[in-house]
């Protein structure tokens, strides 16, 4: 046995390493929002088919995670947050991640198509293409608006869930997409304001680095207003209702207040209280998205009792 084979054996990955390629934490957001999209859609779906649809959407999201890690292995190795991912850690070969990603892409898209309809399958395929090619390969290393583009990829799951039931795209599903889409920039940029990142070492343009923190604060404010408009607009559609609206109005006013506070602060203020306002805003943003989608579910579950929706 030569030394090389011993080394190769040492790199043998466990099942958990392959699972880590699928970015399980991102998957939880995908599963939750796809689940909401599927449940609030008008019409019925066999519960088992619905469950499978969610699973295939999650696997598709995982496939794009694996392809992202394959392409980004060079920059993952340069950043503390990502250096322990399976490829930079040397547990999985880049080629293996590529193979797994392509295989799972084909598997998830075809299975979703067979289980539901071609619109859902095509949307899933487009989501993976968008995340891997448009975001990861093309725009992530090129523009500081990368977060906005990446957010779009993460926003598709509720649209896919909706399409799995209706076979269609509707105003409601587009607004659910827009909610996550407009939410991502304030969420991520507020994080960028208080976390010392090493994106610079990896040559990934982040708004805080390329245009400065002042511009980032302005951007957060603008996107937060856009987000509020979407959130309230969603409440006026057939899947909204008084309960959703009441919660949305309160949460959006609070979120806007936070964004204005961030906007009015200087970096000196921010350093003085170790980014307290930014941290609070970021924490609240997590709750924000969860509660908005959660309230859509509440409206749907109230409908059988004549309480959900506007009628």
């Amino acid at each position: 046995m030569s030394d090389t084979t011993i080394l190769d054996q040492d790199r043998d990955a466990g099942f958990g390493d392959y699972f880590a390629l699928l970015k399980p934490r991102v998957m939880s957001l995908v599963v939750f929002t796809a689940f909401v999209g599927l449940l609030v859609a008008p019409g019925a779906i066999n519960p088992f088919v619905g469950l499978c649809a969610i699973l295939f959407i999650a696997v598709g999201g995982g496939a794009s995670g694996a392809l992202n890690m394959w392409w980004d292995a060079d920059i993952d190795a340069k950043m503390r947050r990502t250096v322990k991912r399976p490829i930079p850690a040397g547990k999985i070969e880049p080629g293996e991640a590529l193979g797994l990603g392509i295989a799972l892409t084909g598997f998830s898209v075809i299975m979703l198509f067979l289980a539901t309809n071609w619109v859902a399958g095509a949307l899933l395929a487009f989501t993976i293409f968008f995340y891997v090619v448009i975001y990861t390969m093309w725009l992530k290393r090129w523009t500081p608006q990368n977060i906005v583009i990446g957010g779009a990829a993460g926003a598709f799951p509720p649209m896919i869930g909706w399409a799995a039931v209706t076979g269609d795209i509707a105003l409601e599903s587009i607004l659910m997409f827009a909610l996550t889409f407009a939410w991502t920039p304030p969420h991520f940029w507020s994080l960028a304001l208080f976390v010392k990142s090493d994106y610079k070492d990896a040559d990934v343009p982040m708004l805080t680095v390329t245009h400065g923190r002042r511009v980032t604060r302005n951007h957060i404010l603008v996107y937060t207003f856009a987000l509020a408009a979407v959130a309230i607009g969603l409440g006026l559609t057939s899947i909204g209702g008084p309960a959703y609206m009441a919660v949305a109005v309160v949460m959006n006013l609070w979120f806007i207040k936070g964004a204005i506070d961030i906007w009015r602060r200087t970096d000196a203020d921010s350093e003085a209280d170790s980014h307290l306002v930014e941290r609070k805003f970021f924490k609240f943003s997590l709750l924000y998205l969860f509660v908005h989608f959660g309230m859509l579910l509440v409206e749907t579950s109230l409908t059988p009792f004549g309480l959900g929706g506007w009628s």
Binding site: Q9, D10, D12, A13, G14, F15, G16, Y18, F19
Partner: peptide
Amino acid sequence: EIHGRRLSRNIGL
């Protein structure tokens, strides 16, 4: 320890 990782992979698959 490698065998443990391989086993986990086989069982998982």
